[in-house]
Design a protein around this nucleic acid. Structure first.
Lengths: 346, 346
DNA sequence: GTGAAAGCGCTAACAA
DNA sequence: TTGTTAGCGCTTTCAC
């Protein structure tokens, strides 16, 4: 035990500050965290001492004492997905503004990883949680009862949950209406996993828009792509291999990854966008913009979504009694680029 | 103080486990964290009690006591950059494997944000740090002396630093040699900020490759793009607006963001890739693949880089005396796609 | 192999 | 307004 403190890189404690300022450590603590409870003169002395010594509070100690830690847990589904990364950034920025620190995890859409993340998190005593729930979240979240939680981007289905999401139905109907407006009748959709609320809602939006326009819903034009590029490719391939008369003239794809697959499948089949097939994706990204032709998309305010989720959570933490379940919906924005055009005359 | 424990969502402590197992809390602690110091029979009893109560250790308490917390800090430059996101993912996965938890921060390449991140981090007593250093890191890192640190992707310039980077020089010379091999003579480069080591190294690789081939280095063919899309666009515009005889026939761009700008500038000028200009970027990404024509790039093993950095750090933490500064370089991989071709005959 | 007791750094009663 | 004191939950001496 020669180098006892070698692992502690922060050794100037409140005690030291208190001594230098010639007060008790209790006063020093108060001076730093509840200024109004201390004489101005004492306060300045303490602050100066703290400054001089380069004092940094030990959050582990104060967290232990207070049962709070100025940290929040964040579980997103996949940091590599630009939309999710944007969510994370919005959260980070909002958290930093209020001096909260973020524990970040990826679930990779796996319920199991989500559970493990929650287990890790638990011991660190975060004060709140923001989660993009996997299908298993309804069960997993029981691991952290009483932990104020915001569900982001989609809903786990848990009652009394606070959610921050986009208007998936509205976003989708806008996109579909755009296609209908261009004259499309055979509009296909590649949907995600119905265990995820966004997939359900986008599908619903698609259906509603068609019905509203008096276009019958056809099951054979709706294929599942399971949220992955591969799934999107396979589904698109199947849809676009139909005989010309049955082949859809427009394709709406329910998420980012699947859209890439769909575009690649289209290219592979030698079809051109938008002449042979109009395509609209959900969620904007760099590649959607730089793609040739540039992709029309329903874009989500991902940064704002993350930022708002975090602000909502921190709001919850301030008030002692969390209000009842809240549900926020942000509007999407349809961006018309080059991947949509009227169907080819037959 | 009616709902005393309402903020503590984890209330089953070691004490409770100990009582159920009919041992002292000291023994319970030992049973869980140093099994060999406890009789097998006692151990199983404790484990069972812990299981039964759903005991979860409080990392705040153990961290406080031990001066360690099973957390590491990670500061990347920008989570929205796919390469950086990939680094983060590699780190996360490696950390999770060893049951470490990650505090993630973005510096956005701003020295100031980096400093603030370090300040936040400090109080949480992370056991180590992985940082993609900003130009101010040399100063900022003094905030956390004694904190085992790995510099990732680039070097701060600090002596005795542990670094995990790619072979920027080798990667660049391969790319330039490829262009030279195609017959290019006027090869331009858009460089990054020389305050960042990768920019310096890539520039050096460019220079060396040219010299090695006997092509004179021309300052007017090297422009700074400051790492941003905008900078890339401006620089490319300037380079490609030269009279045909002086205009470069190939362009090597020093990073991701700038490459987008360069490609967009090229399109805006009505030049076609690769007929009018061959372009090679540094760092692969989804948009580079889906771009039309698909972009030839020097790709980096970003996931491995992150994973390795984290493993290196955790290795450092296990051994008590960290070894001397280490420096790891991973190889890059040149991916030839459609954006490079022989120069047009004049 | 086990228990009693001290204490990590901080904050919240309670007194003064 | 300030100091004294008693822990937060855990680990680690030091005895036994």
């Amino acid at each position: 035990m020669i180098l006892k403190g070698c692992n502690r890189f922060q050794m100037i404690g409140l005690e030291a500050v208190a001594k230098l300022a010639q007060v008790s450590s209790a006063t020093a603590s108060r001076a730093l965290s509840r200024p109004d409870k201390v004489a101005l003169e004492t306060r300045t002395r303490v602050l100066q001492a703290a400054e001089e010594l380069g004092y940094q509070p030990n959050h582990l100690a104060s967290g232990l004492r207070k049962g709070k830690s100025r940290t929040i847990g964040v579980i997103i589904s996949d940091i590599l997905n630009p939309g999710q990364a944007m969510l994370a950034k919005g959260i980070q920025d909002a958290a930093a503004k209020s001096d909260y620190t973020v524990f970040l995890f990826n679930s990779d859409e796996e319920s199991d990883k989500e559970r493990r993340a929650l287990e890790s998190l638990r011991g660190h005593m975060p004060q709140g949680l923001i989660v993009v729930p996997t299908p298993g979240a309804k069960t997993n979240l029981k691991l952290v009862p009483n932990l104020p939680t915001i569900e982001l981007d989609r809903a786990s289905g848990l009652k009394n949950a606070h959610t921050v999401m986009v208007d998936n139905i509205g976003g989708t109907t806008t996109a579909i209406n755009h296609l209908i407006g261009l004259g499309h009748k055979r509009i296909a959709m590649i949907v995600g996993d119905f265990a995820i609320s966004t997939a359900v809602e986008r599908h619903q939006g698609y259906r509603e828009a068609l019905e509203h326009a008096g276009i019958p819903y056809r099951e054979d034009l709706v294929l599942a792509g399971h949220h992955r590029e591969d799934g999107g490719r396979t589904a698109a391939h199947k849809l676009l291999s139909k005989p010309l008369k049955q082949r859809p003239t427009a394709l709406f794809v329910g998420n980012n990854e699947m859209t890439i697959g769909a575009v690649l499948a289209t290219r592979a089949l030698g079809l051109s966008i938008p002449e042979d097939i109009s395509i609209v994706g959900f969620d904007d990204s760099r590649w959607a913009m730089t793609l040739h032709p540039a992709l029309s998309v329903v874009s989500q305010p991902a940064y704002d979504l993350g930022y708002l989720a975090c602000e909502t959570l921190l709001g919850l933490l301030e008030r002692h009694k969390p209000p009842n379940a809240s549900s926020v919906r942000l509007a999407t924005n349809f961006i018309s680029r080059e991947s949509t055009a009227p169907p080819r005359k037959t």
